[in-house]
């Protein structure tokens, strides 16, 4: 799930404005300011994922290391069942390692289109590492108030064919430049997923949403929460972390 984190955070990196209007600020400016808050060359994040099942909720804790867009590594810390499970993503390849079986399983091709653990996230969703600007044209289309915070509404429309979501909408805090909500749409315009960011706090001089709820809009249920426990921006991460050898360590 760490990848989802990275993906959503990285997704905003390097957006280019599609057009300027007189009434709204430049989309590029907004996104640059968002990136300044959320994006760094490398990150180490300890986070919790709360899965709301039909019957109970449960929490999984993990630590994740990311370098740029293409490399990431994460390790589950709790609960006991998952402790020691590791995931390595290098470009479009994904390995999952489990200590119980001492096997690393590679997921590739059609497998990546399958959903992760019966959720509505596909592995592919988690692995998208292209910049949003490579995939989407962006423009600011309005403003709205969310939880008392004034936001700009950014609309992103796909300009390439092989993206999972044809268009997206982002609500960015006008003062802190943190996205507070994102919606993902199908080609037909049908809303598929909604991501809500809350608990915005200042960390290392950056505004950062510490809680994120990811919800499949077609299914009933409460969705999944991601909670950031701690985050380091631009730490030094040794290169060997992002190798298959580190899966077994």
């Amino acid at each position: 799930m760490k990848y989802l984190m990275s993906f959503l955070l990285l997704a905003s990196f390097g957006l280019l404005p599609a057009q300027n209007t007189d009434t709204y600020p430049d989309a590029l400016t907004i996104i640059e300011k968002v990136d300044a808050n959320l994006v760094s060359d490398s990150q180490i994040t300890e986070s919790e994922m709360v899965i709301h099942g039909r019957r109970n909720s449960r929490t999984v804790r993990s630590i994740g290391y990311t370098m740029g867009n293409e490399k990431s590594f994460s390790e589950y810390l709790a609960p006991a069942k998952e402790k020691g499970t590791k995931m390595l993503k290098l470009e479009d390849r994904l390995w999952i390692y489990s200590p119980d079986t001492d096997r690393s399983i590679q997921l590739s091709g059609h497998m990546l289109k399958q959903s992760v653990m019966g959720s509505d996230l596909s592995y592919e969703d988690m692995m998208e590492d292209r910049k949003l600007t490579e995939m989407y044209d962006a423009e600011v289309t309005g403003s709205e108030t969310i939880d008392g915070r004034a936001t700009w509404i950014l609309e992103l429309n796909a300009k390439v064919e092989d993206v999972a979501y044809d268009s997206r909408k982002m609500w960015v805090d006008q003062e802190r430049f943190v996205p507070l909500k994102e919606e993902l749409y199908a080609k037909s315009g049908q809303l598929l997923k909604r991501v809500t960011m809350t608990d915005v706090a200042k960390i290392d001089g950056r505004w950062f949403p510490k809680k994120m709820n990811y919800k499949d809009m077609l299914k009933s249920g409460e969705g999944t929460d991601f909670i950031v426990l701690s985050i380091q921006f631009n730490p030094d991460i040794p290169e060997h972390i992002f190798s298959k050898a580190s899966l077994r360590m």
Partner: peptide, 8 residues
């Protein structure tokens, strides 16, 4: 509990 599981 919808967590990942592996078994040889």
């Amino acid at each position: 509990n919808s967590s990942m599981t592996f078994q040889n």
